[in-house]
Design a protein around this nucleic acid. Sequence first.
DNA 1: AACAGAGCCAACCGCCAGCAA
DNA 2: TTTGCTGGCGGTTGGCTCTGT
Length: 413
Amino acid sequence: MGRSPCCNVQGLKKGAWTPEEDQKLLSYIQQHGEGGWRSLPQKAGLSRCGKSCRLRWANYLRPDIKRGAFSPEEELTIVRLHSVLGNRWSAIAKNLPKRTDNEIKNHWNTRLKKCLIESAAYHHQNYNSSSTTSTIHLKKNDGTDPAKSIGSNTSTTTSAHLLLNELAASPKLKSSNNSLALLLSQPYRAGNGDGDVEGARHKKVLNSVTVLNKLATTCLKHNELPNCTIHDTLKTVLSKSCAPSCDAAKHSKSSSISIPIIEIPNKCSTVMESTKEGNGSILDQEAKYVNPATSPRVIVLNEMASKLAQVKRRCPALLNKSTDLVASGVVTESNGSSPALQIPGPAESPVSRNDLWLLHDIGFRTRGVSSEETPGAKDELKYVTFSELGDELDQVDQFMRNLMSNFGDDLIN
DNA sequence: AACAGAGCCAACCGCCAGCAA
DNA sequence: TTTGCTGGCGGTTGGCTCTGT
């Protein structure tokens, strides 16, 4: 049960502050300092409630407040921090000197959130339309070519299946019995054998989500994972994909927005390019960095991590198992120097702002830098680069390969 | 010029945690 | 342990401004 509002007292003024009121409040605080808000109005000669005075001071009158348009760097910081902290505006404000939580909150609600949502819509449209021409056809393991793409009938998994196809198209993968190739070829195994996409569409089609769900189910079924590089990989992926959303949910009364893809739509960039004084909002600069080729890999990694996180939630002991399959030779130890797949392009690209926007979606938290692991480092965050992301993707693939080695039969059957 | 709708943001409201009595 | 006070937080609102018709 909450207390009665302090502003219910009859006769107290509400609404916009006048310059005279501001001056009274300012003078009083300069003379007596902050605090004692309940008694302050009377002492300062104001017909306001204490709470109103405190807010006016904190959000407007304080001398160390920076007002005006947010710089690209500040916007970037907000997006990055929001991905980890959620709607904890005060915590975000602590990382933005001279900005108030209220101002950041307003900026997010009126601009940034809108642009992110538009970006997501744009991206979905972009990829759904492009998927018809860029999808890579997989070969079945028996050598016949179904000449059909997987998941083409599912709009929600377009990006994921594009990347899975991209992975599958890798020369290395093509020349081996890679787990992804096996997984991706499954729609045709599961069908009636004629490789007809129409047939598959009406029967059992494995899109990327299904693949990942299957992966998750298998993990759960076996209730354990080998204690080897897979263990570390999974742990890394889970810690990155799971932490932010859990954290945000814990600290935010309302759910923060969850956007599958971040890409800067033309509409946004156009709007921002007209910003006065060319005071580059982040968005018009972002437009220059848009690289559609970089997006799907992020998304599929996110999807993979999300599914694996589900496994973790359902089976907390998963990461503590110590079955040593390395020693038994079932799984080979990776020396880290030769990733499972070499995917050209994004991994070699320099980090751009767009990468960081993309990372907002994933909510990456840098290895080892969390409040739990590093006392005193609360809210101090570092972000992975795109090249690191490439490594992660390789590791996830390695994980899947190893998993297939152990549980392949269960996945296929 | 007048109007409507959208955008923006200062301010309000309800709730909560910390603290002291 | 309970109660009340205080400051702080995040969601929401209302009014002002801008923009388009």
